[in-house]
Amino acid sequence: MKIVVCVKQVPDTAAKVVVENGQVTWGDAPLVINPWDEYAVETALLQEEEHGGEVTVISVGGEDAKEALKHALAMGCGNAILVSDPSLKNADSLVTSQVLAAAIQKIGDVDVVFFGKQAIDGDVGVTAAQTARVLGWPSLTLVSEITELDPGSKTISVERSVEEGRQVVSGQLPAVVSVVKDIGEPRYPSFMGIRKASRAEIPMWSIAEVGVEVSEPVVEWPDLFNPPKQEVVTEIVSGGSPQETAETLAEKIIEEKVL
């Protein structure tokens, strides 16, 4: 089975992301693999373990996105490809998905593509669906469990985590799947993987090599500003008995219209 995982390099969750002179900056905080994408890598590796085949991890980004790719290699992915092009500097999710779709086509004979549910930097959360659309493949988003995947009959059944609960969906392969946390804790990189990843020469494809004409970005960021500072007031609720404390707390909650 041929599996592709798409990963993005993002600022660390601990980084302080702020707007300075109209630009988003996180100082010199390290970049890491998008945490949601680690779940996608885990899912891909589990499927590979079950069905055989190989996992290729791809990223669209600058040179530093190689870090995310190396992380995925260290977790156990077989190959990595970086798609990088100066023209992609202001890519929105539509442009990214066109590039990813073209790269997936170029890899060829791919059965299933995994994404994390969203990237923690832009938090757009539609790249998976857009990629599916460009490829013309079924889009199974917010998947919490893969209940069945049969490369022979080219079918897949999943459970989706939606606001109302769990939704059982089946579709045909090839398909694009985005996963949520419930799919299972991502493994750590292994030493064997680390050895392999640190020696890996990651091929870099340009837009021309991928062979895609990308559209103009349709999403613009006309203005960026820091969220207003929140004033937090702490109040400790007490009472003579737990009963009394709870009652006072409940009253406060109702009063403040928290519930």
Partner: peptide
Amino acid sequence: LTDEHRMVQYMVREFA
């Protein structure tokens, strides 16, 4: 630190 070092650091940190 090399990539190898940083990945080891990350891996052991995550475990601990």
